[in-house]
C-alpha cells in the first residue's frame, strides 16, 4: 500500500522522471523569460515594475508551499518514524530557503518604486522574514544536532510554530491593515490579474517548479548515497 514510502521504489521512480524534466526545463525557462520581460504588457499604473511580479509571486508561493510540505513530512516522521520523509524534507529545505530569500529581496526591490520604501514593518513582510528564520532554524537543527531522536523532536516543535506563522503570512493581508496588497490570485475566489499577465505568471511558476524538481532530485540522490555509504561498512 505504502509503495512510495519505500525508499528503493521511490528512488528508482525518481531516476526515471529526471530525464524528461531536464528536457523540458530549458525551453520552459526561455519561453517564460521572453514572456515576462518582453511580450507581457505593462500595468496601467505600475508600468514596467509589474514585471518583478513574475519572479516575486511564484517564488513566494514556492517558499510557502515548500514550508508546509516540510512541516508535514517532519510531523509524519516524528509520529510514524518514516525514514523516507526525513530524507525528502532534508532535500526540500534548501530549496525553500532560497526561494524565501528571493521572495523577500525581489519584494523589497519592487517596494522601492511602488510604495516608496524598501522595507516596512507591516504584518506580511515581518511574518515572511520570520518564515526565513524558521527555515534557518530547521536546517540548523538537523545539521548540527547529531542525536537523531532529539533532532526530530526539535524539528517537530519548530515546524508547529512555523505552521502557525505560515497561517499568519497567508492571512495577514486580510486580518490587519498592511502596506502589502491583498492576494491577487485566488484558487477559489476571483483573480484580479489580467489574462495577458496570468499567462507569463503561470509559465514562470512552471519553470520554477521544474527547477525545484531538478534540485530536489540531485539533493535526494546525495542524501541516499550518503546513507548507503554508511551501510557499506556493514557488508
Amino acid at each position: 500500500m505504502f509503495n512510495f514510502l519505500n525508499i528503493g521504489n521511490f528512488f528508482v521512480l525518481l531516476n526515471k522522471v529526471s530525464k524528461s524534466i531536464k528536457i523540458i526545463f530549458v525551453p520552459v525557462i526561455i519561453i517564460s523569460l521572453v514572456f515576462a520581460l518582453y511580450l507581457s504588457p505593462k500595468d496601467y499604473i505600475q508600468g514596467d515594475t509589474v514585471r518583478i511580479m513574475y519572479v516575486h509571486v511564484p517564488s513566494s508561493w514556492i517558499a510557502l508551499g515548500c514550508f508546509s510540505s516540510i512541516s508535514f513530512l517532519i510531523i509524519l516522521n516524528f509520529i510514524f518514524k518514516i525514514k523516507n520523509a526525513l530524507i525528502i524534507f532534508k532535500s526540500l529545505a534548501p530549496i525553500g530557503l532560497s526561494f524565501c530569500l528571493i521572495s523577500i529581496v525581489t519584494g523589497s526591490i519592487w517596494g522601492q518604486p511602488t510604495w516608496g520604501t524598501f522595507w516596512a514593518w507591516d504584518a506580511r513582510l515581518t511574518s515572511m522574514l520570520v518564515l526565513l528564520f524558521f527555515y534557518l532554524l530547521i536546517i540548523f537543527s538537523y545539521k548540527f544536532i547529531k542525536d537523531q531522536n532529539f533532532s526530530s523532536k526539535i524539528c517537530a516543535v519548530i515546524s508547529v510554530f512555523g505552521l502557525i506563522n505560515l497561517f499568519i503570512v497567508k492571512y495577514s493581508v486580510d486580518f490587519w491593515s498592511t502596506l502589502h496588497q491583498p492576494a491577487s490570485v485566488n484558487i477559489f475566489g476571483e483573480t484580479s490579474v489580467h489574462k495577458s499577465m496570468l499567462l507569463p505568471l503561470s509559465f514562470m511558476l512552471l519553470g520554477f517548479l521544474l527547477y525545484c524538481a531538478l534540485i530536489f532530485l540531485m539533493k535526494y540522490r546525495t542524501e541516499i548515497i550518503r546513507m548507503k555509504k554508511k551501510g557499506l561498512k556493514r557488508l
Partner: peptide, 17 residues
C-alpha cells in the same frame, strides 16, 4: 513626515483600463 503609496491587487494592461 513620509508618504508611502499603497497599491491595490489589480493588475491589467493600460488598454483594458
Amino acid at each position: 513626515k513620509r508618504i508611502l503609496a499603497k497599491h491595490d491587487e489589480n493588475y491589467m494592461p493600460p488598454k483594458n483600463k
